[in-house]
């Protein structure tokens, strides 16, 4: 009856596993795969390679997996709900809002680290809601391509980012703690935050999976979904909340790393379709793989210098952004023809 695309899922899982092993094996020193596997399964505290794998690379890899899964699922849901190919947590103000609140909380209210997760979620929600608010103010919210939404999000993201930077730069003694986080960086020391906040991401993704079917119906339009039996407002707001919580928890861990949320849904959709029951797991897998590879690239491409993963991602993402703009915005015939 339905296209079960187990082969696609299996391929996705294989890609993640390969990316994970590559991430763990390559770096300043290359470690052969057998040692990597042995380090994971039979850790030897006296073996330096094992130490590198388990205490330096594995934490980074786990953060990358968490980041990729939450951002990609968030992007898929936002693209579906807004019907806009450019929608993603990074562009609709969630990332920058979360970052702003974390910085304000830490620098102005001296929030301890455990509370930064709460600040990030409040900020993510603030960022997204303010983006919707500004879109409405432009009076163009009925504009079919949702350009106003994307532009409001981009403008607010820049605004929040610059305010956060200004606050950081104003206190030279403490800014070094946050400067690298604020540009989006995966660092093995952030693994403590992963321990603190991982359950928020898991909760958000779990909620989205439970709502997968009604959420898919909502992407058909309000009346269509309601007539099929969906409580549209409730499903929309719970899933937006789940996206904000999971994405903001990722921002709380490694800063605003955006483009994986924009790019992954476009890569995944042609293979597994637009039904969230399969699109969400596939996005989580491929998003994780992309972040693992981006992290690997950030560590190795410009060796011995280590780039911030966020910068690496922006490099890749900028390119893909241009392709999406060209495909969906500059060639009006494409989408109409595909209807």
């Amino acid at each position: 009856m339905i296209r079960y695309r187990y082969p696609a899922m299996l391929a996705g899982a294989t890609v993640v596993l390969a990316a994970l092993l590559a991430n763990l094996a390559f770096g300043a020193t290359s470690i052969d795969l057998r040692s990597v596997v042995r380090a994971l399964l039979a850790f030897d505290a006296d073996d330096y390679d094992h130490f590198v794998v388990v205490y330096q690379r594995l934490p980074r890899a786990l953060i990358a997996v968490f980041l990729g899964a939450t951002m990609a699922c968030g992007g898929a849901v936002l693209q579906g709900l807004t019907r806009n190919p450019l929608a993603s947590p990074g562009i609709l103000g969630i990332n920058s809002g979360a970052m702003l609140f974390v910085i304000v909380g830490a620098f102005i209210f001296n929030l301890p680290m455990e509370w930064q997760g709460v600040a990030a979620i409040a900020g993510g929600l603030f960022g997204f809601v303010s983006c919707l608010f500004v879109t409405r103010m432009t009076g163009m919210s009925k504009d079919p391509r949702g350009l106003a939404l994307i532009l409001s999000g981009a403008v607010l993201s820049m605004l929040y980012g610059s305010v956060a930077n200004a606050i950081m730069l104003a206190s030279p003694s403490r800014r070094s703690d946050f400067l690298s986080w604020a540009s989006g960086n995966i660092n093995h020391v952030y693994v403590e935050r992963l321990m603190d906040f991982w359950w928020l991401g898991a909760l958000g993704l779990g909620l989205l999976m439970v709502l997968a079917r009604p959420l898919t119906l909502v992407t058909f339009g309000r009346e269509k979904a309601a007539s099929a039996g969906v409580d549209v407002s409730r499903v929309t707001w719970i899933s937006v909340g789940a996206v904000v919580v999971s994405v903001s928890s990722a921002v709380a861990i490694c800063g605003p790393i955006g483009f994986v949320g924009l790019v992954t849904p476009h890569i995944v959709r042609p293979f597994v379709g637009a039904s969230f029951a399969r699109a969400l797991p596939a996005n989580a897998l491929i998003g994780a793989a992309i972040c693992l590879l981006a992290d690997l690239a950030a560590r190795t491409v410009f060796a011995p210098h280590i780039l911030h993963t966020g910068i690496m991602m922006d490099l890749l993402g900028g390119l893909v952004f241009a392709i999406i703009v060209k495909r969906y915005y500059l060639s009006p015939g494409v989408r109409e023809a595909s209807r």
Binding site: I2, K224, G273
Partner: peptide
């Protein structure tokens, strides 16, 4: 009626029974 790209007929019918 609007249908998102890549939704199959089988998925559409299955969603009908939601």
């Amino acid at each position: 009626n609007y249908c998102p790209d890549y939704i199959t007929l089988g998925e559409l019918v299955e969603l009908g029974g939601y």
